[in-house]
Simulated assay, not measured.
Amino acid sequence: MKHTLVAGALLVTATLTHAAGFQLSSPDIKSGGTIDPRFEFNGFGCSGDNKSPARQWRGAPAGTKSFAVTVYDPDAPTGSGWWHWSVINLGADVSELKPDAGAVGGANLPKGASHVRIDYGVAGWGGTCPPQGDKPHRYIFTVYALKTDRLELPADATAALAGYMIKANALGQASFTAKYGRAKAKP
């Protein structure tokens, strides 16, 4: 933690590191690769299966008490990016999310874990769906190792609030990025 005095107030900033040996991967999506259309959202003009891909991680830093997983598109034309998935309260003994763990309702999540409401307005996976004709968007898949057993968030918490609490409690993170684009609509 870094402490800074700003205008008479103490500002505490968490320093997030990529922990040595902490790794995230997916059998469904290669780091630096292209995301398969089956993970595309079904709605807003997109017609994918809206199923979340599997994820595995290993090498969490010492002291990890829980995990959180997020998927974020920094290229969405919103001014603030787009949250596609946010999962909190994954136990320290959890090291993977199975395919379609993102189903709305949380039935496919490990015990104790929960979804956070994302930018589609639901608590669950929201697949890729960049505007047609945009250059391929980057999707950042991240797992965070947390120093707390649970994040206590309101039931209607936003992904941005969850992100704030995740980063405030993170010991380390592991990420990979993949891309997805949609061809321009034919006239």
Rank of each mutant, 00 (worst) to 15 (best):
W83G: 00
P74T: 10
S95C: 04
R182N: 08
K51G: 00
N42H: 05
C129K: 00
A145C: 05
T64W: 11
S52E: 05
H84M: 03
V6Q: 13
D93R: 09
G133E: 11
P136H: 06
K147C: 06
Q132H: 15
G32K: 05
K65H: 12
I166K: 02
Y164C: 07
K167T: 09
G172V: 01
M165W: 11
K30D: 14
G81Y: 02
N89S: 08
T13M: 07
G102I: 05
D100N: 15
E96T: 11
K186H: 04
G124I: 05
Y120Q: 01
Y139R: 07
D28F: 08
P53D: 10
K147Y: 01
G106M: 13
F141E: 01
S114L: 12
F67P: 02
S47L: 05
L10G: 05
V69W: 04
A168C: 09
A101K: 00
H115N: 13
L153F: 04
K184L: 13
L153V: 07
A178N: 02
L97I: 07
L16S: 01
L146W: 01
D36S: 14
D149Q: 13
A160G: 06
C129D: 07
G105W: 09
G45Q: 08
D119H: 08
V69Q: 06
Q23N: 13
F39T: 00
T34R: 14
K2L: 14
V12A: 14
T17I: 13
D119E: 09
G48L: 00
S47G: 04
A113M: 08
V12R: 13
L5K: 12
G133V: 08
G106V: 14
A103L: 15
R55D: 00
Y120A: 06
A62S: 14
A170F: 05
D36W: 06
A54K: 05
L16H: 06
D28R: 06
P27I: 09
Y120F: 01
L161M: 11
L171D: 01
P53H: 08
G124C: 09
D28G: 07
V94T: 10
S31N: 14
P61N: 06
H18R: 15
I35A: 01
A162K: 05
D73R: 03
A92Y: 10
A54S: 15
V104I: 15
T17R: 14
K135C: 03
K186W: 03
T128H: 03
Q132M: 09
W57Q: 02
P136V: 06
A68D: 01
Q173W: 07
F176C: 10
G124N: 08
K30I: 06
A60N: 00
Y139C: 07
V69F: 15
Q132A: 15
K51D: 08
T148N: 08
L171G: 04
P27W: 12
T148S: 14
F41R: 00
A76S: 14
P77Q: 13
A60C: 04
D119L: 07
G181F: 07
L90N: 02
A14R: 15
